[in-house]
């Protein structure tokens, strides 16, 4: 009897420990996020006047006075909405071209045992390894050269950025989508062929509709990748195409630190990725896991 009670007590203790640990993990994850939210709702005076050594002015989690002004002011000091538009155009462009190219390549890789398939997959994996700066320098030099030779600008243009980001999203997108297509049974292809479908017909009428979730995951991967990119944007974008990632840095200058506005801008910048992720969480997670472990 005592043994059972003991066991029961142990189980309860175990339960409590689990919930405490979960709370701890949640706190670890959410605290910086909440600090961002709280910072975006404070007045500039409160943030700039704060002093950790002075209890009366010590920075607080709960704003002393709430204000939404930062969300409006954020666009007056830095052209963050323009940058937002630029990011949106570049990310959507990357998403469309990335999905188109990777669906074709992935279909070929999953359904045909053609010559050079292994080499191609290997080269896709290799590009994942190289540091971004290795590509950034020749990109910059070649963009400038192209302009000198043809007069067509590449740097600080939407198509230049879309080209750049598509190329970096492609390897992982192809591998991710190939894994997805391989989960679609080949019997379906064969059946379609028996029914008189041409290979192109099979791709467009059978495979593409079936692989919508996979394509959605790849599209969102491309979008988020372009939205978040810093290194290439820091050099290849300029006043016409500057993206949000780089724009955020403009709130802090040597003369002025506009932390409250920057936090408000951070919230705005996070919204598109948060929405996309919430809608497509399962597909993205499955795609990431498959892409990273089976590639």
């Amino acid at each position: 009897m005592a043994g059972i009670l003991n066991r029961k007590r142990q189980q309860v203790l175990g339960r409590i420990t689990i919930y405490l640990l979960v709370l701890l993990v949640l706190a670890m994850v959410l605290l910086p996020f909440l600090w961002m939210l709280s910072g975006s709702l404070k007045t500039t005076l409160e943030i700039q006047g704060a002093d950790v050594m002075d209890p009366a002015k010590s920075p607080r989690w709960w704003p002393r006075t709430f204000t939404f002004e930062n969300y409006i002011e954020a666009n007056n000091t830095v052209r963050i909405l323009d940058y937002f538009k630029n990011s949106l155009i570049i990310s959507i462009g990357t998403m469309i071209s990335g999905v188109l190219l990777s669906v074709m390549a992935a279909y070929a890789l999953s359904r045909y045992a053609f010559r050079g398939r292994g080499v191609y997959v290997m080269s896709l994996l290799m590009t994942q390894m190289f540091p971004g700066v290795l590509f950034l320098i020749p990109y910059f030099v070649l963009f400038v050269w192209f302009k000198t030779l043809t007069g067509i600008p590449m740097r600080d243009t939407y198509w230049g950025m879309i080209l750049t980001y598509t190329s970096f999203a492609l390897p992982f997108s192809i591998l991710m989508l190939r894994n997805y297509l391989e989960s679609i049974p080949r019997e379906i292809d064969e059946q379609a062929a028996l029914d008189g479908c041409t290979p192109w017909g099979t791709l467009f009428r059978i495979i593409l509709p079936l692989s919508k979730p996979g394509m959605a995951a790849v599209g969102i991967y491309c979008f988020i990748m372009a939205w978040n990119e810093v290194l290439f944007a820091s050099v290849l974008t300029g006043q016409y195409t500057k993206t949000v990632s780089i724009g955020l840095l403009e709130y802090i200058t040597t003369q002025q630190a506009r932390w409250a506005q920057m936090m408000a801008a951070c919230v705005i910048v996070s919204i598109p990725v948060l929405i996309l992720f919430t809608i497509m969480q399962k597909q993205i997670v499955d795609g990431l896991v498959a892409g990273a472990t089976k590639g």
Binding site: F33, V52, P59, N228, V230, S245, V269, V285
Partner: peptide
């Protein structure tokens, strides 16, 4: 909870590191 723990991963790098930069400020952090 499984969804929430992915929050740091999905937040853009520029957002995450700027927030941490704010948190690590000496006088106001």
């Amino acid at each position: 909870v499984r969804g929430i723990v992915l929050l740091p991963y999905i937040l853009p790098d520029s957002v995450t590191y700027n927030v941490w930069r704010f948190m690590f400020q000496s006088r106001i952090g």
